[in-house]
Computed example of a mutant assay.
Amino acid sequence: MTTSERDVIEVLTHDHREVERMFAELEALHGIGTDEARQRRKDLTDQVTIELVRHSVAEEAEVYPAVKKKVSESEAEHAKEEHAEAERTMKRLEGLKPDEPEFEAQLALLMQEVREHVAEEESEIFPHMRSVFTQEELIELGKKVESTKKLAPTRPHPSAPDEPPGDKILGPVTGLLDRMRDAVTKRGTER
């Protein structure tokens, strides 16, 4: 099966496993006081943030409007609220250095928020989507999510619009600016 044939649930679940893999590495590095370990934790935190922001933007632009329309408005709104909480945490984390005490507290909070959101999404929203959408609709949504992720921002922007048309207009522009800034600072790249 090619990447473009994966349905939206497969795409999003793959994202969830990638983030969890990075969380596990972050937890394994916790308490190691070397400069190298602290730098790796900061790099991993930046990478987690990039992945979570891209994932969230794609869900908010493509998945949640479809869920709101065909599955449950309350489930879509609850998921967006969880995204907003995590985005505010990522914004606070972005300004912290790994040797600051608040870094650990914010990172732990982010992991908790994301893990709770993933558990709810995978146990509630995804099964509901499987029962309501056709396989073709799920594959089409998967293609839209992957396309949106390519243009999505890579940094948290808690005050940015998260609904059409604002997200679809500003998202790609913000994404371009974020990727340019990341390229200059080498953020999100292996060092």
Rank of each mutant, 00 (worst) to 15 (best):
E137I: 05
D99F: 03
S123W: 10
S147R: 14
T134M: 02
S123E: 12
K42N: 01
L96H: 03
P101Q: 14
H128Y: 10
L138A: 05
A58K: 14
D43C: 02
R40A: 02
K91Q: 09
R115Q: 07
K69M: 07
A86N: 09
Q106C: 04
M129Y: 10
M129C: 09
R40E: 15
Q106I: 02
R40N: 07
A152P: 14
R130M: 06
S123N: 11
S56C: 04
K69L: 13
F126W: 15
D99Y: 07
L52I: 15
V132L: 09
E85N: 15
K143Q: 01
L151T: 10
F103E: 02
L110P: 04
T148C: 12
A76K: 01
E122S: 12
R130C: 11
R115L: 01
D99E: 06
E116H: 10
V132R: 02
Q112G: 04
V114L: 15
K42V: 00
E82V: 01
E73M: 01
P101D: 06
L107C: 01
F133A: 00
V71H: 03
S56V: 15
P65L: 14
V118H: 11
E121C: 08
G95S: 03
H83V: 05
A86Q: 15
K68Q: 09
E137D: 15
Y64T: 05
L141W: 00
P98H: 11
V63W: 12
V63P: 14
E87P: 06
L44M: 01
E121R: 10
S131Y: 12
F133R: 08
H83Y: 15
Q47N: 03
Q106S: 02
E136Y: 04
M111A: 07
P153L: 10
M111F: 05
R54C: 11
R54A: 07
D99M: 02
K143W: 02
R88D: 15
E140Y: 13
Q112N: 10
L52S: 12
V145Q: 10
P65M: 09
E77W: 13
H78Y: 12
L44D: 03
K143M: 00
S74R: 08
P65Q: 15
V57M: 06
S123P: 08
F126H: 11
Q135M: 07
R41Y: 00
A152I: 02
D99H: 08
T154A: 09
L151H: 05
Q135H: 13
V48L: 01
M129E: 10
L109A: 11
R40M: 09
V63G: 08
D46P: 01
I125T: 13
Q112D: 15
V114T: 05
L93Q: 00
P65R: 10
S147Y: 04
H78T: 07
E94C: 03
Q135I: 08
S131G: 14
E85A: 14
H83P: 00
E82K: 04
T154N: 08
H117R: 05
G95F: 03
I139Q: 06
S72L: 00
E59C: 07
K70M: 12
T148N: 05
A108Q: 08
E51N: 13
P127M: 07
S123A: 13
G95M: 01
D43M: 01
F103N: 01
H117Q: 09
A86G: 13
Q112V: 07
Q112E: 13
K70E: 07
V132M: 11
